[in-house]
Design a protein around this nucleic acid. Structure first.
Length: 888
RNA sequence: GGGCGUUUAGCUCAGCUGGUAUAGAGCACCUGCCUUACAAGCAGGGGGUCGUAGGUUCGAAUCCUACAUCGCCCACCA
């Protein structure tokens, strides 16, 4: 084994081997219980980023953990066609070659996108593999695969036949740059500093004007009325007048509608039914014919003055306001902040647009999905997302699913010249009504999420009820980002209930967003990307995963900086070196490891085994509760600060001493036992290095029931062994450690060089401690660099020495001429002050009548013991301090 | 406008059901060490009135209320 762990060669070789041996393959005929996850399919638009790294690390931890726990696990990988996003990037690329999709035609363009898809799909799956993801690659799916496309069509037809899918002319969110409709969720609202324009609309009879307020004055060209609240008396006298709409001369009426807020603006609202969702609703109530004044690129169009035709909406706003001002028709312009929808793909300001679209009626679908959350059948981690989910479900609105793009699932609807509409899973050849063969398919495609919402079962072959689906559906855990709670998670739950009758997963992990150290989202435009593909070759995928998971509490955002990955890399290296050291002590071939009988175990052996059992329990519960950071801390602390710092150090005595082969082989077996357990516990978090060390370990040691598989992936996850938990050994060991630390502190504070050995005298608090510490003098000497330690309740206090008190045990470090009086006086004085303040607060508490009478008896008892203990330490420390002064 | 969350060491954050003699970790900092697994390391140390003000409680970083702060999500304020 090399002196430093080198992840890049190990990781590549190891992953290849896993693939070759088909360890990731899920077997639907396995008798083991199933555990399954479907990947949130990455878009084929891009490359892997840190968000994917986090998301997939979490899933892989769960999958590897359950696999080792004896489940038949299935992790379904795949990618998403990401309609608008992918079409956009391909169009941009074509634009560079001076091509555009309209010139190419639909078929050629879609072929072009497929080529792109192949390329990027390959890239992103390669990248997922670099992270160590143990997906079942044999099952990989793409949202536009034949099977998934068939599922999409089936679902569309079913919902249509039930009346849950309908088509109609409504105001929808429109992106004029992508030239497509968007769902409400795809319009991101952002607060903008805008203006509120107060415009004067003159009455036709010349008797004055009404003032209306608007943030989008250009839409006035499409006004069809002015609305006031029926109870608003200010307008009672004028509401029968006709208004001459400026710049157009069109005559428009007043209407009365309860929607109008009397307090806002002037209480009179211009009504633009074709360009505003509220106005549209009013238009329906008052039978107003929409007047469209913009085209699909948001350029001014229609029955409007020539001057404005073809003008961009924002350009028109400026020109038109100037024109109105010139005509004296602008009363005032106020500053006004309001939130404006932006296209979630290209950030263009969306325009409410009146057009023919397809919708899904959501209320009936939402009912069981809402109940599932209310009844905790589906659980969110962290739980606070439950409320957000419920709020959305309770106020759900219909889903606009048609998109005016080409890349995606074309809507399975055909139109015949005779007016017949055919909605069918298969492409129809003739019209049922008139037998015409001249059928035209609806040119729109479906929203990307219309295929994603079927993902948990469409990927498994639904609607076919096959063995694979029987085994692995419903899945167990879904890990994703809260950004797509509504887009995806909620809709999957709805689709799961509607089409399979089952909740598609029971646990939803909503992890945070990856940000830079200043809290900004990582994005190309900000230039603050930390690219996982640059991190992995340097630090290793293990370090990347472990570091990210360790520093992030459940559901909180991940803040990454340049040095973040040191944590994982250093830890991997520490583990590597400890393993190298232990295995290096096995000189000749492989040994047969076995736990020595209890009477041959030394105190530190019982201690580390006891600690290990707790760690096993804690790891398992942390991972089961999706508290991955706690799992990392648990194994990190145990490995580094208990196993390496204390146990392996203590075992050196056994390794270095010649002459007792039994002692050495016991020590090696025990170290092997603990190391193998650490590797198993750590494997889901750091898959590569644990597999590599496992291989080295297997070369050197066999161990029945422990080193139990050729790959650690297939090894059995440790189970806690209650008989090995030994609380009294643990507390004895705590005392020992505290004594050693106290002696080291005296050395260090007095600047005693490491090569100066000294002697120690320990006067224990009682016979029990005496017996324990007497048995540990060799360990004390080793750890505190002493030549001799005398432990006896009858021991004489030495002359001038450094001293400390640990739980009533008095320690003296004797080093002739090297202990500094002033240092000791300062140390002990501080210690006395500290103990006094603790004693005072304990005393005050014990003297409080209410504490004694109201606190639980065991707490009171503990407090008493604590107080007595402190008094003993205080007294002994004070005496030691006094002795120094006496000797002065 | 509604909802959710954050505020703990110089920095980034843990701290779950209120009670552990000193509120933890990593990084940074100070001191001493290249001690034959590891300088990506070892040993030791300094550093905190847990955002503010009230309240509940024998006891509050932890529960409640208000305020402040920063952030996120939702919303048809024209």
């Amino acid at each position: 084994m090399e002196k430093q762990y080198n992840p890049s060669t190990v990781e590549e070789r190891t992953y290849r081997r896993w693939l070759e041996r088909r360890y990731f393959h899920a077997d639907e005929s396995s008798p083991k219980p199933a555990y399954s996850i479907v990947i949130p399919p990455p878009n084929v638009t891009g490359v892997l980023h840190m968000g994917h790294a986090l998301n997939n690390a979490i899933q892989d931890i769960l999958i590897r953990h359950r696999r080792m726990k004896g489940f038949e696990v299935m992790w379904m990988p795949g990618t998403d066609h990401a309609g608008i996003a992918t079409q956009n990037v391909v169009e941009r690329r074509l634009a560079k070659e001076k091509k555009n999709r309209h010139a190419m035609g639909r078929e050629a363009f879609v072929n072009e996108v497929w080529k792109w898809k192949e390329e990027y799909h390959a890239t992103i799956t390669t990248q997922l593999k670099k992270l160590g993801s143990s997906c079942d690659w044999d099952r990989e799916r793409f949202t536009m695969d034949d099977g998934l496309s068939a599922a999409v069509r089936k679902v569309f037809v079913e919902l249509y036949n039930e009346g849950l899918i309908y088509r109609g002319k409504y105001i929808i969110n429109w992106c004029p740059r992508c030239r497509t409709a968007l769902s409400d969720e795809e319009a991101e609202h952002k607060e903008l500093n805008g203006k509120l324009y107060h415009l004067k609309y003159p009455y036709e009879d010349g008797s004055g004007h009404v003032v209306v307020a608007t943030t989008r004055p250009e839409t006035m060209l499409g006004d069809v009325a002015v609305a006031v609240n029926p109870a608003d008396e200010r307008y009672a006298a004028v509401k029968n007048k006709k208004i001459a709409l400026p710049l157009t001369g069109r005559s428009i009426p007043f209407i009365e509608d309860g929607f109008v807020d009397r307090e806002f603006g002037t209480g009179a609202v211009k009504v633009t039914t074709a360009h505003d969702p509220n106005d549209f609703q009013m238009g329906l109530r008052h039978n107003l014919e929409p007047v469209v004044v913009m085209d699909e690129g948001a350029l001014m169009a229609g029955e409007i003055p020539e001057k404005y035709k073809g003008m961009d909406r924002f350009e028109c706003r400026k020109t038109l306001v100037a024109d109105l001002e010139a005509a004296g028709l602008v009363e005032k312009i106020d500053e006004h902040n309001h939130s404006v929808g932006h296209c979630y793909r290209c950030q263009t300001v969306v325009e409410p647009y009146y057009s023919d679209q397809w919708f899904v009626k959501m209320k009936p679908l939402a009912e069981p999905a809402l109940a599932a959350a209310v009844n905790d059948e589906v659980r969110f981690y962290p739980a606070r997302w439950k409320k957000t989910y419920i709020d959305w479900m309770e106020n759900i609105r219909d889903w606009c699913i048609s998109r005016q793009i080409w890349w995606g699932h074309q809507i399975p609807v055909w139109y015949c010249g005779c007016g017949e509409i055919i909605v069918s899973e298969e492409t129809p050849q003739t019209c049922k009504k008139c037998s015409s063969t001249a059928l035209t398919q609806d040119s729109d495609v479906l929203d990307t999420w219309f295929s994603s919402w079927l993902w948990p079962f469409s990927t498994m072959g639904w609607p076919e009820d096959n063995d694979f689906m029987k085994k692995f559906y419903p899945t167990d855990t879904l890990a994703t980002a809260p950004e797509i709670l509504f887009f995806w998670v909620a809709r999957m739950i709805m689709a799961g209930y509607r089409f399979t009758g089952k909740l598609p997963f029971t646990d939803v992990i909503l992890h945070g967003t990856v940000r830079d150290k200043t809290g900004r989202k990582m994005s190309k435009s900000l230039g603050n990307i930390i690219d996982p593909l640059e991190v992995i070759p340097v630090y290793g995928a293990d370090a990347l995963r472990f570091s990210m998971i360790m520093i992030t509490a459940q559901g909180s955002d991940v803040f990454l900086g340049k040095d973040t990955f040191d944590i994982g890399r250093n830890f991997a290296n520490k583990l590597w070196n400890a393993s190298r050291f232990l295995l290096g002590n096995i000189k000749d071939g492989a040994i047969q490891g076995t736990l020595p009988p209890i009477d041959r175990m030394k105190a530190e052996d019982k201690w580390i085994l006891s600690k290990l059992q707790r760690v096993i329990k804690d790891m398992d519960s942390a991972i089961s509760a999706y508290r991955f950071n706690e799992a990392c801390h648990t194994i990190y602390d145990f490995t580094w600060h208990e196993f390496c710092d204390w146990y392996v150090e203590a075992k050196k005595a056994d390794f270095y001493q010649d002459g007792d082969p039994q002692r050495k082989s016991d020590a090696l077996s025990l170290c092997g036992y603990v190391l193998a357990s650490i590797l198993k516990l750590l494997h889901p978090l750091m898959p590569f290095i644990t597999e590599e060390i496992w291989a080295h370990l297997r070369e050197k040691m066999t161990f029945d029931g422990l080193i139990d598989a050729e790959s650690i992936m297939l090894a059995k996850y440790p189970e806690p062994e209650p008989s090995l938990i030994n609380e009294s050994v643990e507390s004895d060991f705590d005392l020992l450690k505290n004594c050693i630390v106290a002696l080291r502190t005296i050395r260090s504070e007095n600047n005693i060089p490491p090569d100066k050995t000294g002697t120690a005298v320990i006067i224990p608090a009682d016979r029990e401690s005496e017996a324990w510490l007497v048995s540990q003098t060799a360990t004390i000497n080793l750890f505190a660099k002493l030549s001799e330690t005398t432990v006896s309740v009858d021991a004489q206090k030495p002359g001038f020495a450094g001293s400390a008190v640990v739980k009533g045990n008095q320690l003296f470090l004797c080093l002739e001429g090297l202990i500094d009086k002033n240092v000791e006086i300062e140390r002990l004085t501080k210690e006395v002050a500290r103990l006094k303040s603790i004693a005072d607060s304990a005393k005050a508490r014990l003297e409080s009548e209410s504490f004694i009478s109201r606190a639980p008896a065991d707490i009171v008892e503990k407090e008493k013991e604590k107080y007595q203990g402190i008094l003993v330490n205080l007294e002994k420390t004070e005496k030691a301090l006094a002795m120094i002064y006496i000797r002065e």
